[in-house]
Design a protein around this nucleic acid. Structure first.
Length: 153
DNA sequence: GCCAACGTTGGC
DNA sequence: GCCAACGTTGGC
């Protein structure tokens, strides 16, 4: 799951512990949350668009079942969707819980350097990847955790 | 700020 | 259903 650290960082998540992942307005990303996420699923927390230190910043977990994003019903919200109704919600989210902040951000650069390990299809190094929520395999997750423990050169 | 790579919208 | 125009994301 991606977030721009200026808007919401791993430090913010550590402070609040649990955050409803609202505001996702992309159907594919919504489907991943609505259809595929289970409570307790491990999550890579990625800092996108960072001034520096773009990369995986820590670990999180799915902390709720999927439910309707309340911001879609709120005319005051930036995420308001006039076509959504409580009877027929269009957007869904899960709560995300803090697990761990990496001592150092695992830089995108390093992910790219380890493409053979992670696989060329690893979502964070794939070209044109713009989904804020996307799946990784268990193997990829483990590899990322392992890489986070190695020192930067 | 630029640009590539999308996704969405709307006219037809 | 097609496609141009437009908007957004994200790396650099």
């Amino acid at each position: 799951m991606k977030s721009e650290p200026d808007a919401f960082s791993i430090d913010d998540l550590e402070r609040v512990k649990v955050e409803p992942w609202n505001g996702v307005r992309n159907y594919q990303a919504r489907n991943y949350m609505r259809d595929d996420m289970k409570v307790g699923d491990p999550v890579l927390f990625y800092h996108s668009n960072a001034a520096k230190e773009t990369g995986v910043a820590g670990l999180a977990k799915v902390a709720s079942k999927p439910y309707a994003d309340p911001t879609q019903f709120d005319p005051e919200s930036d995420y308001y969707d006039p076509k959504a109704t409580p009877e027929e919600p269009r957007w869904f989210l899960v709560d995300v819980g803090f697990v761990e902040k990496f001592p150092q951000v695992l830089l995108l650069e390093k992910l790219k350097a380890n493409a053979p390990l992670l696989g060329e299809d690893f979502v964070l190094i794939r070209k044109g990847n713009r989904l804020s929520v996307a799946p990784v395999t268990a193997e990829q997750y483990k590899s990322v955790v392992k890489l986070s423990k190695t020192k930067r050169s």
